[in-house]
Design a protein around this nucleic acid. Structure first.
Length: 380
DNA sequence: AAGGACTCCAACCGCAAACAA
DNA sequence: ATTGTTTGCGGTTGGAGTCCT
């Protein structure tokens, strides 16, 4: 292997820079400008290699560097540019004044990437993860045919891999399905068809008030059918699942659609936005404290055709991901938050702003639930 | 209170392109 | 055209700080 250009054996220092070293570097560059990095440290009286000096200057000491947290707008820009450019951090940084490629790369890896994963979006392709599509289809299938051992096994495997990333409601539904077994001819079981455990022993989901949960456990001593849910129950649950499936299938990749009339289509097709009521976008934007929804939608209408296609595509993607992302767990999408204030910050590791960002999609789920009047009874 | 686990980010490393001689 | 040097880039690491049990 070639000798490292920054060898400590040469008496060159490595590791964190001291304020004195910083000052030496700043003073030297102020007087002589940068360039000739190889000779710079010697001339500046620094026991560092040129590469280290260059990095320190470009990533930290440069006067035009913007320090501090990334704004919502910057974050949105990074996501959009990454969708098009991939890991071309320097190209992305060139479009974000004051930010370095290193800073953007770190921010992507520590914040945005994780957030996208939580939302069920592949951070590389910016499309919904395939395993989620599989889960959606499997859940639908299991709802109709819960006795299928193949479905059960498949679902079990999938849950094993995805459980930690799933929203509690979806997890409850999936595990409920897994715990279902076809009833025998017992006449004392309840209409829900659960025999692996006595239904009275099933713990209520931790976000459902006990009283509500108990009211769900209605007995029907006469029903001995092997159909796990009544037609109306099945239809109801399916209605809950459909937006999920829809949004999954609508979450398509963006760049290939440049120049299309997607925005026009998406405006006409309100179902693309949300299964909720009209005015969803404006309402959500005003209630979840994330102004981008409104500003983005208006800016799309005012932008040039190419930008419009680009922006509308991203906008559409973000909106069509609403339902399925809401089904994935995020700290603020936890059961506690569902029943409490938006300002319940579950993850103390994150700042309130972090959680607000995380809540962007999970808050939509809350709106979703509110609109459906969904509670534990209905969902189960 | 302690220590293990986790997060974050500055700094490093190696490779490749650009440039100079 | 070739060779050596410089610069730019993206991936990875190390350690300080914080959280969790």
């Amino acid at each position: 292997m070639a000798k490292s250009p920054c060898s400590e054996k040469d008496g060159l220092k490595k590791g964190p820079w001291t304020p004195e070293e910083d000052q030496k570097l700043i003073d030297y560059i102020k007087r002589h400008g940068h360039g000739r990095w190889r000779t710079l440290p010697k001339n500046a009286g620094l026991k560092r290699c040129g590469k280290s000096c260059r990095l320190r200057w470009t990533n930290y000491l440069r006067p035009d560097i913007k320090r501090g947290r990334f704004s919502f707008e910057e974050e949105e820009t990074i996501i959009q540019l990454h969708r098009v450019l991939g890991n071309k951090w320097s190209a992305i940084a060139a479009r974000l004044p004051g930010r370095t490629d290193n800073e953007i790369k770190n921010y992507w890896n520590t914040h945005i990437r994780k957030r996208l994963l939580k939302m069920g979006i592949d951070p590389v392709t910016h499309t919904p993860r395939l395993d989620l599509l599989e889960l959606s289809s499997l859940l639908s299938s299991t709802l109709y045919n819960p006795q299928s051992s193949q479905n059960q096994l498949h679902l079990q495997n999938l849950l094993g891999n995805m459980g930690p990333l799933m929203n509690q409601n979806l997890l409850n539904l999936a595990t409920t399905l897994l715990s279902y077994q076809p009833k025998s001819t017992s006449t004392n079981s309840t209409s829900t068809g659960f025999v692996s455990q006595n239904v009275q022993e099933i713990s209520p989901p931790n976000h459902v008030p006990e009283s509500q949960f108990q009211s769900f456990q209605t007995s029907s001593t006469s029903n001995t059918s092997t159909v796990p849910y009544s037609m109306s129950e099945t239809q109801f649950i399916q209605a809950k699942m459909d937006p999920f499936s829809q949004s999954l299938t609508h979450g398509t990749s963006c760049p290939n659609n440049f120049g299309s009339n997607m925005w026009q289509n998406s405006v006409e097709d309100e179902a693309l936005f949300t299964p909720c009521s009209e005015g969803f976008v404006a309402n959500m934007a005003s209630t979840n404290g994330y102004p981008d929804c409104v500003t983005q939608s208006s800016s799309i209408l005012n932008s040039t055709s190419e930008n419009q296609a680009f922006a509308s595509c991203n906008f559409q993607n973000s909106m069509t991901n609403v339902s399925f992302t809401s089904l994935l767990s995020t700290p603020s999408c936890s059961p506690n938050t569902l029943n409490s204030s938006l300002k319940t910050y579950v993850n103390s590791n994150s700042s309130p702003e972090d959680n607000q960002r995380d809540s962007f999609c999970s808050n939509m789920f809350m709106y979703d639930i509110a609109n459906y009047g969904l509670n534990g009874n209905e969902f189960l």
